[in-house]
Simulated assay, not measured.
Amino acid sequence: MKNNKGLRSNVFVSITAILLGIVASFLLIALTGISPLKAFGVLLSGAFGTSGRVSPFLITLGQSTPLILTGLAAMYGFRVGVFCIAQEGQYVFGAVMAAWLGVQLHLPPYIEVPCIFIASIAAGGLYGLIPGLLKVKLGVNEIISSIMLNNIATLALEYLVAFPLRSDAGQKAQSAVLDQALWLPQFVKGSRWGVSFVIAITLVFLSYIYIWKTPGGYEMRMVGKAPLFAKYGGIKSDRVVLRTMFIGGGIAGLAGCMEILGNYHRIMTGFSSGLGFDGLSVAMLGGSHPFGVLLVAILLAGIRQGAQLGLQINLKIPRELGGVLIALIIFFVATENIYRPMVERIYDKVFNFFHRLKKNSIGNEESVK
C-alpha cells in the first residue's frame, strides 16, 4: 500500500510539473498578444487531432517511437542508480550498424532484417557497457564518461558517413538508400507510425515484466534503491549494473536501427538529432517507469508536433516554443523539492476524501442489505 501511495504521489508531482510548464509557456504566449486558450486549442489539435490527409495524432505516435526507446534506455540506467547520458552515442552506433549492414549484406529480407536488429542491439549494448565498466571498475563518473562517448560517437558518425559509407559526391554526405524490401512498413503512409511503434510498445510491456516480475528485475531494483541491502543479500551489484547497462544500450541501439529501417532508409551527416538526450527527459518525467515513459514520450512528441503544425503554421508562433515548453516542464521536475510537500499534502487530502467516500458507500450498501 505504501509503495502504491508513493507511486501515486510521484505521478501527481509529474502532472503538477507538466501543468506548471504549460502555464508558464502560455504566460509567454500572452505577452505576444495571442490568447493562451486559443494557442492551447491549436496546440492540442496540431498534436492529437484526427483531421487532415494524415492524422496529426498518428504523426505524433510515429514521432514518439524513438523517444519511447531512448526513454526506456535511460530508465534502465536510473533503475540501478547510474545516471548515464550516453543514449545519444548508443543510438548513433545502432543506426550506423543498420545502415552499413543494410548495404553490405545481401540476404533474404526475412533473414537480413533480424540480423540487422541483432547487430544494432549489440552495437548499442556494447557501447552502453563502456560507462558501466568505467564506473564499477575504475570509479569514473558516468556523466563525464557519457559526454565523452557521445562526442566520440558523433565524430565517428561524421567520418563514417563522409568516407566509408558515402554513396555519392553530392553536397551532403549520406549513405546509399537501403533496398525497399528492408524498410519497416508504415500503417499510414507519411505518418512514421508503423511496425517500429508496435515494437516499442512491446518493449514497454516486456520491460515492465522484467523489472517487476523476474529475479533479474528484483536484483536491479535492489541495487538501485538499497545497494547495502543488495550487497549483504548476496547480489553481485557490479554484474547487475553491467547487465542493465547493456540492456539499456541495446534498446537505444535498436532505436537508431528502427529510425534507419523505418524512416530515413539511409544515414547522413547530422543524423544525430538529440534523441538520446530527449530520452533522459522522458525517463525523468516518466518516473523511471515503463508506462510513464510511454505516456511522456507521446506527450513530448505531441508538444513538438503541435508547436510545428499548430502554433507555427496557424498562429505564426515559432515552433521553438515547443522546446521551451519541454524545457520548462523539465525545470519544474528538477525543482520539485520546492513544491513537492505542498503537492503531497493536497494529494493526501484528495486521496483520503475519496477513500472515506468509498468506505461510506460500502457501509451504506451493507446497511441496506
Rank of each mutant, 00 (worst) to 15 (best):
S25G: 05
S25R: 13
S25N: 12
S25F: 04
L27G: 10
A30E: 06
G33M: 10
I34K: 15
S35P: 05
L37N: 14
K38I: 03
F40K: 07
F40N: 08
V42A: 04
V42W: 03
L43Q: 11
S45H: 14
S45L: 07
G46D: 04
G52Y: 09
S55L: 04
F57H: 04
L58C: 08
L58H: 02
L58T: 12
I59E: 02
T60Y: 06
S64H: 11
T65W: 05
P66Y: 11
L67S: 05
L69N: 11
L69H: 08
L72R: 05
A73G: 01
A74H: 01
M75V: 03
M75H: 04
M75E: 02
M75Y: 03
Y76T: 10
Y76E: 02
G77L: 03
G77M: 00
V80M: 00
G81K: 11
V82H: 02
V82C: 01
V82T: 04
F83H: 08
C84G: 00
I85L: 13
I85K: 12
E88N: 04
E88Y: 05
Q90T: 11
Q90E: 09
Y91W: 13
Y91S: 00
V92Y: 09
A95V: 06
A95P: 01
V96D: 06
V96Q: 11
A98I: 00
A98Q: 08
A99E: 02
A99C: 07
W100V: 14
W100Q: 08
Q104D: 03
L105I: 05
P108N: 15
P108G: 12
P109F: 03
I111Q: 12
P114Q: 09
P114N: 13
P114T: 15
C115Q: 14
F117P: 01
I118M: 11
I121S: 13
I121L: 03
A123H: 03
G124V: 07
G124L: 04
G125Q: 00
L126P: 02
Y127G: 00
G128E: 07
L129V: 04
P131Q: 09
G132H: 02
L134V: 06
K137P: 00
L138F: 11
L138D: 05
G139S: 13
G139L: 08
V140E: 07
V140P: 00
